[in-house]
């Protein structure tokens, strides 16, 4: 019975199917808002589902000379890690008692799996542009991960040095969301920008720059494998803002969370549409120097309880 429940939670709610359906819907919101900014009408609501269905039913070509296992492992890693992340976020928000020591560390590793999947897939494609894309993905990962970890450290400090996810949410219930303090704002900004980079949205869509390296790591992907990448991206678009809300904006176990969630989504889409793409060295500089210093400042402020 327990096994069935666990499987249900991983595959249907709130795991794979739920987060994929919501995530794909969010990509529609993204495309629609983008279109409105462009003075266009934009696609109908079922568009991402049609894209997904079509990709599932199309031929999947495996490039000559590339490893089959690695070629499919890449997209699979992303889907699995995002499903687990969705389950963890939901269970810990609605039932903070299910949290265990160090689960935040697990989440950091889960978040790292998605770019690793892209790097594996890109390197397995045997295409010079895909390998350029993979190496850019790697560089960008190293760029945003450092300030991202600092931002998490701010949150942990503010929660009283607790690395239990449930405790962070409970601490916010007790003292009010961390966002309403100076260091909390810094943490939120840093996590938001890292989210932008993790989602590979402009200005940080450097690994898959269509006009430079033709979709980068995804260049050789088609059919089911590409659908998996697309759905990973959609699930990330769902889970990452939730992660941000639960860390600094008091969790999402209430109705207000929907509004907060939409606000963050729209913010991400606006940043995406009002900036050109950065160069990889500029992104590195931006995250390590600009955002890096900001996050250290936040850490100091958090230490003094501001």
């Amino acid at each position: 019975m327990n096994i069935v429940r666990i499987l249900f939670s991983f595959i249907v709610f709130p795991g794979f199917i739920f987060s994929a359906v919501i995530g794909l819907f969010l990509t529609w919101i993204d495309r629609k808002v983008t279109a409105r900014i462009h003075w266009r009408v934009g696609p109908p609501w079922f568009q991402p589902y049609a894209d997904f269905l079509k990709l599932l039913l199309k031929e999947t070509i495996i490039p000559e000379g590339s490893s089959k296992v690695l070629f499919f492992l890449g997209p699979l890693l992303g889907v699995v890690s995002m499903s687990i992340l969705a389950v963890m976020l939901f269970s810990m928000n609605f039932n903070p008692a299910s949290s265990y020591v160090g689960d935040l560390i697990v989440i950091i590793y889960l978040l790292a799996l998605a770019p690793i999947g892209i790097i594996i897939g890109g390197s397995a494609s045997k295409n010079p542009l895909a390998s350029v894309g993979a190496s850019r993905e790697m560089t960008q990962y190293f760029a945003y991960e450092l300030p991202f970890l600092f931002a998490l450290a701010i949150v942990i400090l503010k929660a009283g040095g607790n690395i239990k996810f449930g405790e962070i949410i409970l601490a916010q219930e007790a003292t009010g969301p961390f966002l309403y303090s100076l260091s909390g704002v810094i943490a939120a900004v840093v996590i938001l920008l890292s989210t932008q980079a993790k989602l590979s949205f402009v200005p940080f869509d450097i690994p898959e720059a269509e006009q430079e390296i033709m979709a980068g790591p995804y260049i050789e992907y088609s059919g089911v494998a590409l659908a998996m990448y697309k759905v990973t991206r959609a699930m990330m678009f769902f889970t990452l803002p939730l992660f941000l809300i639960s860390l600094v904006w008091g969790g999402f176990a209430n109705w207000w969370a929907i509004l907060k969630f939409l606000l963050i989504i729209v913010l991400i889409i606006l940043i995406k549409n009002t900036n050109p793409r950065l160069r990889i060295d500029q992104a590195l500089k931006f995250f390590w120097i600009g955002i890096g210093i900001l996050s250290i400042l936040g850490l100091v402020l958090a230490f003094y309880g501001l």
Partner: peptide, 22 residues
């Protein structure tokens, strides 16, 4: 693809790799 015609209404998207194309 631009505002006056906007074929994204019909789901038509210009992609960067022939592997993704229908």
């Amino acid at each position: 693809l631009t505002p006056r015609w906007d074929v994204e209404r019909f789901g038509i998207v210009l992609v960067g790799s022939p592997r993704h194309a229908d």
